[in-house]
């Protein structure tokens, strides 16, 4: 099967209908293994049991960036190749990416609570993730604001690519801003060296979350394709039959 075949939405629907059960099963199994490994991982000698938040936080943070990369690739598909599935992929990914980013923020602030004593610290990494979250929300607002999906797709594609170029600049600026005000960060997330006891559960969880994203994304794309079909059917229905019904004698109207 080539990419051209997949480009056909009907083909995509029938293929993914067969694929989706395996994806769901894979997600469940991987998440179960990952959660078991996380639960049985030892406590950190400094952070205690709170270190286990890392097993949820890091995969979410990784996906928050990965989803933007997926949307950027889709944006290229929309702008350069006008691939019929590209804007569907981009639109379906945005709310999922926003959810992962939101979870990264929540778990980050829960993790920070025992370290900082507050739920929120304007730490360079967390702040960058917060800006990424705002950009996801802006993108979703753009999708919602324009009724015609084709026009919204092009605007969103431009915004996504501009965002992809800007994100490193924002990240750099925030780091600079943060070090300017706080010479040494109290607490670095993720740490530089990880013990093996932490590394394996983290890797499994990262893979599990990635598969979870793929499953959700495929399901959301199917919904979006069906939603667009409903829309074009409704438009056809609106166009149809107006004339012949309108011809029924106007004299029959209530006076």
């Amino acid at each position: 099967m080539t990419l051209i075949d997949l480009a056909n939405p009907s083909r995509f629907l029938s293929l993914t209908a067969r694929l989706l059960p395996y994806l769901v099963a894979g997600t469940v199994v991987l998440l179960a293994i990952g959660l078991y490994l996380s639960a049985t991982a030892p406590d950190d000698y400094q952070q205690g049991a709170t270190v286990k938040i890392m097993f949820i936080h890091v995969p979410n943070a990784w996906l928050s960036m990965f989803v933007w990369a997926v949307m950027s690739a889709s944006a290229l598909g929309t702008l350069v190749w006008r691939h019929p599935l590209a804007d569907v992929a981009a639109k379906a990914a945005a709310p999922i990416g926003a959810s992962f980013t939101f979870l990264a923020l929540v778990t980050g602030s829960l993790w920070g609570r025992p370290m900082w004593g507050t739920y929120w610290e304007w730490d360079a990494r967390l702040t960058s993730v917060l800006i990424l979250f705002l950009m996801y929300l802006g993108l979703m607002a753009l999708w919602r604001a324009v009724e015609d999906p084709a026009r919204a797709a092009r605007a969103a594609a431009v915004l996504t690519l501009v965002g992809a170029i800007n994100l490193p600049i924002i990240k750099f600026s925030v780091d600079w801003w943060n070090t300017l005000h706080q010479p040494a960060s109290v607490f670095r997330m993720g740490g530089s060296t990880l013990d093996r006891a932490f590394l394996y559960p983290l890797l499994v969880m990262a893979i599990a979350f990635t598969v979870l994203f793929i499953t959700l994304h495929v399901a959301a794309m199917r919904n979006e394709i069906l939603r667009r079909r409903v829309r074009s059917l409704q438009m056809m229905q609106a166009r149809a039959a107006s004339n012949d019904v309108g011809a029924t004698s106007p004299a029959s109207q209530p006076a």
């Binding site: 610290e121 304007w122 702040t127 005000h181």
Partner: peptide
């Protein structure tokens, strides 16, 4: 969110 960038991350 913009405000701390102007004021500094001073809680």
């Amino acid at each position: 969110v913009l405000m701390p960038f102007a004021l500094g991350p001073d809680l």
